[in-house]
Design a protein around this nucleic acid. Structure first.
Length: 538
DNA sequence: CAGTGAGCGAGCTTCCGCTTGACTT
């Protein structure tokens, strides 16, 4: 008979911990929450001080009985749920539902699944924190009241089976309001001028004019000037700069990167991550923490040294930027950092490699970059051309990880390139100067992943609910994820080659969208309804 | 007389956050 029963939330976690604790400990799992507000009716007794009415989910009855039995035959029960609001409540619900004897019950917490952390936790038990429990109960009751007061109004006024709540309704509102911004957006156009210049030893590079012209007439006048102009390098500045690696993954940043780099929906990412977690390849995947255990940092260090040498190591501790973070776990990382890849299907493989690279990169040196700016003076004109160059002096973390951004700027950038060796005073030959009409862009529509980022920023939802919430608002028909064809738009291109100035009308596709979230009519209607009546209802 | 249709009443939907499977495709 085991002397000790440890209860955690996740069965995968239970398996790992059992290995660390040895024979005297049996580790079982609660599979998350074990009780919740009554499903029928409000589940909150408003007359009696808003007292919550809890009931055990019928599907959990068997589990509770099992845990009860295990508790009875143990000397000590260790409640080891997560150290956050929900975890503390789970510990309390367990102690209530299992009718645990306080004399033989201990509450322990750890933020990483390592042997030292677990043993240390066992050495330092504490009591259940009732402030946290009450905070959770208040959160739960408020969500129920809001959801179960608002939703029936929608059934009555709009359509049956609709829903409203603290998280989903705000998410829909973000999408509706973004669409309004886009509808009201007035696009204006500017002429952007780019020149190709050739040095005396026949090397070419491009440079952008320091201003953009509002009208075709201004742009034409400028190009006319250029016909007779002389171009000369008036200034060169070189500035060292550096890039630092991003923090290890949280749920939300993993969802964003997997979406940007692999095009995965947030639910696909979470399903793959769950598989990797269950097979022991990665740490817990629902986390808001960017923290790595010392063990992980040391593993990363060894791995970096053996692959790239000591120059590439720079261990770091990252701090969370998100306000609501509860940091009950580590960041998402491989459990073994010397494993570059894993078996399993292609999706799991790719996601694992992404996590591995991000984790390793986070403990690597900064990339050292030299930025060069070349000013090109025009002798008959007040404007100047500017060429920006960037040379990587030391790649550091960039050797494994490229940082991606949301900007889907189709414009070929004149940045990030290598410039030829030149010196101040050098004369340059123009080899084609082009003024292209460019249009200002409306704000971008949300993708699933960029919506998650916004939600996290606003403190709406939790790592465990981002994916389900996004699926709910689609299931209710408030928003749709769609691909929409773009339309053709004409633009003017003025090009100066030698002494010849040509005007062309060209056309380009604009407004093509893929995987973006659009509000539906019902989404817009419900949003309007809620905004109008919210104050009266609650 | 058999089949149709209008009208009525009862019962259901719903929140957020913690967990996996059990289901389909």
């Amino acid at each position: 008979m085991a002397k000790n029963l440890v209860i955690v939330e996740s069965p995968a976690k239970a398996k790992t911990i059992e290995k660390y604790l040895g024979k005297d400990y049996v580790v079982k799992s609660s599979f998350g929450h074990i009780r919740d507000l009554a499903k029928k009716n409000l589940g909150v007794n408003i007359e009696s001080d808003f007292r919550p009415v809890y009931e055990v989910d019928p599907e959990k009855k068997k589990l509770i009985a099992e845990l009860k039995k295990a508790a009875k035959t143990s000397d000590t029960v260790w409640l080891a749920s997560d150290e956050d609001r929900e975890g503390e409540a789970i510990a309390w619900h367990l102690s209530e539902a299992l009718k645990l004897d306080p004399e033989h019950t201990k509450r322990i917490v750890f933020h990483e699944i390592t042997k030292t952390a677990i043993l240390n936790a066992i050495e330092n038990p504490r009591e259940i924190d009732y402030n946290l429990v009450d905070a959770q109960q208040a959160r739960r009751v408020l969500d129920r009241l809001v959801g179960f007061e608002l939703s029936p109004l929608l059934w009555q006024k709009v359509k049956p089976s609709l829903s409203a709540g603290r998280v989903q309704s705000v998410s829909v509102r973000l999408i509706v309001e973004r669409e309004e911004e886009i509808e009201n957006f007035q696009s204006t156009s500017l002429f952007k001028v780019t020149g190709i210049f050739t040095t005396a030893d026949n090397k070419s590079f491009s440079a952008e004019l320091s201003t953009k012209f509002k009208t075709k007439e201004e742009a034409t006048a400028f190009l006319e000037d250029c016909k007779t102009a002389n171009f000369k390098i008036s200034n060169i500045t070189k500035k060292p700069s550096k890039k630092s690696p991003p923090a290890p993954f949280t749920t939300s940043t993993l969802q964003q990167e997997a979406s940007r780099k692999m095009g995965y929906s947030v639910s696909k990412t979470m399903t793959l991550a769950q598989r990797l977690y269950e097979s022991g390849k990665i740490t817990y995947m629902r986390t808001d923490s960017v923290n790595l255990s010392d063990l992980a940092i040391n593993m990363a260090k060894d791995e970096i040294i053996s692959q790239w040498g000591a120059d590439y190591v720079k261990t770091r501790k990252f701090k969370t930027n998100s306000k609501g973070a509860q940091e009950a776990h580590e960041a998402i990382r491989p459990t073994q950092l010397n494993k570059h890849t894993v078996g399993g299907d292609a999706g799991q493989k790719r996601l694992y490699e992404l996590i591995w690279k991000r984790t390793i990169a986070s403990q690597m040196s900064d990339a050292l970059i030299e930025k060069t700016v070349i000013d090109i003076e025009i002798d008959n004109n007040k404007y100047k051309f500017i060429a920006n160059g960037e040379v990587i002096k030391f790649d550091g973390f960039l050797t494994v990880y490229n940082v991606s951004t949301d900007e889907e700027d189709a414009e070929p950038s004149t940045n990030n390139k290598i410039l030829p060796a030149v010196k101040e005073g050098d004369a340059l030959q123009p080899n084609g100067i082009v003024a292209i009409q460019r249009f200002t862009k409306h704000p971008a529509r949300y993708t699933e992943a960029s919506l998650v980022r916004k939600m996290e920023e606003l403190g709406i939802g939790r790592p465990s609910t981002y994916a389900p919430t996004i699926s709910t608002i689609q299931k209710r028909g408030y928003v749709v994820k769609e691909e929409r064809e773009g339309v053709l738009r004409d633009y003017i291109e003025l090009s100066l080659k030698g002494n010849e100035l040509k005007e062309n009308i060209k056309s380009e596709k604009t407004g093509y969208e893929k995987g973006k979230l659009f509000p539906t009519d019902i989404g817009i209607l419900v949003n309007k309804f809620l905004i109008k009546y919210f104050d009266d209802i609650l």
